[in-house]
Nucleic acid binder design. Structure first.
Length: 348
DNA sequence: GAATCGTGGCG
DNA sequence: TCGCCAAGATT
């Protein structure tokens, strides 16, 4: 006896035996499952865990989340990355409350902001038992290796073939578990590098394995070149507080988050003028503070941090986007981890 | 379809 | 150090 049904049962049996005990697996609450799936977008389980606990304990249900100010949600999200997810989560919570409850189908979930094919399929199958696939990076890798798919999962053809294969494997009685089994297998056994094929319930029929080249899948396309940017940042202290500015809500990058003042490195010779044009106020910098003190590399941004204070008579605090915070308060704000790094570094 | 959005871990 | 990657969605 062979075929998709048999493999699907092998997979489920393996999942029942080996599944990790995760907080969102011990609940049937759609709210918690939705929150976890949103946080898990492009983010590994281990990193999500503390943020998940913090969010669901701060906002115990969708009503609490919908009532909360966006700023509070961003503060909880602070450090997790992809902050757009927090905004969409918050907006979707308000839509859910407005429509009187959670959607019960994948199609319904797809109408919510921040919910794409994966998240919609995951929530619909796990929380509501709908027989739809949920294809994340793990599932895509497992299936690509299993069927030795030659098309890249990001392409149209590859996506279509993956979806067809995943649909054929969704268990009629336990759709949520069979989806999670595929993802779990990819995370724990069918890993990106050095897959543990000898522990895999699908080993015997895996085409990639039979070719002796499981790691060659999924096929991927060449990546782009990274260009490094260099910036001059300023940590301004006064009376035990540090000056931060909030980025515009419409910014494409880190929108609405707090950051230290900075300018392009090439404009450092006119630092005071550049800072004035960007943030307003008076930026006559105290000469006694010296020049560059620290250097931090973060992704493709190199930050040269200049620590100091402003001369008296500056009017920066009149800028509505400006705020003075103590070092400990910064930790509770919606800041990126870059700011976190800079503050720690500049505190030495 | 390609680029973009954060961050941390890994070999 | 560097490239890749990790439970994707949006424009």
């Amino acid at each position: 006896m062979d075929g998709p049904r048999c493999e699907s049962q092998d997979l489920l049996a393996w999942f029942d035996r080996c599944r990790r005990d995760l907080p969102w697996r011990s609940t049937s609450d759609p709210y918690r499952i939705w929150v976890s799936e949103t946080m898990l977008q492009q983010t590994q389980v281990e990193r999500v865990l503390p943020y998940y606990e913090q969010l669901v304990s701060t906002f115990s249900d969708v009503d609490a989340l919908a009532r909360a100010p966006l700023e509070d949600v961003l503060a909880v999200w602070s450090g997790l990355g992809y902050y757009r997810r927090a905004r969409y989560l918050h907006a979707a919570a308000r839509q859910i409350v407005a429509r009187g409850g959670f959607p019960r189908t994948m199609a319904g979930w797809l109408e919510l902001p921040g919910v794409g094919p994966y998240t919609a399929g995951a929530v619909a199958s796990i929380a509501f038992g709908e027989r739809v696939p949920a294809i994340d990076g793990n599932a895509a890798r497992v299936l690509s290796r299993f069927a030795a798919l030659e098309d890249s999962p990001s392409g149209k053809t590859g996506r279509r073939r993956l979806t067809a294969l995943a649909e054929s494997l969704v268990d009629d009685d336990r759709p949520g578990d069979s989806n999670q089994a595929l993802m779990e297998l990819g995370a724990v056994v069918c890993r990106p590098s050095q897959p543990r094929c000898h522990e895999c319930p699908l080993e015997a029929s895996c085409k990639g394995r039979l070719q002796g080249a499981a790691e060659a899948y999924p096929r991927r396309k060449p990546s782009r070149q990274v260009i490094e940017e260099r910036r001059l940042g300023v940590v301004v202290r006064a009376g035990g507080r540090v000056l931060l500015f909030r980025r515009p809500e419409g910014a494409s990058l880190l929108a609405g988050l707090w950051e230290i003042p900075w300018i392009a490195w090439c404009a450092r010779d006119n630092a005071a003028r550049e800072l004035r044009s960007r943030y307003g106020g008076n930026w006559d910098l105290d000469r006694s503070c010296g020049w560059v003190r620290h250097s931090i590399t973060h992704r493709d941004i190199r930050f040269e941090v200049w620590t100091g204070r402003l001369t008296s008579g500056c009017h920066i605090a009149e800028n509505p986007e400006a705020g003075w915070y103590t070092e400990t308060e910064v930790g509770g704000l919606a800041v990126s981890s870059l700011v976190d790094k800079v503050m720690r570094c500049a505190a030495d």
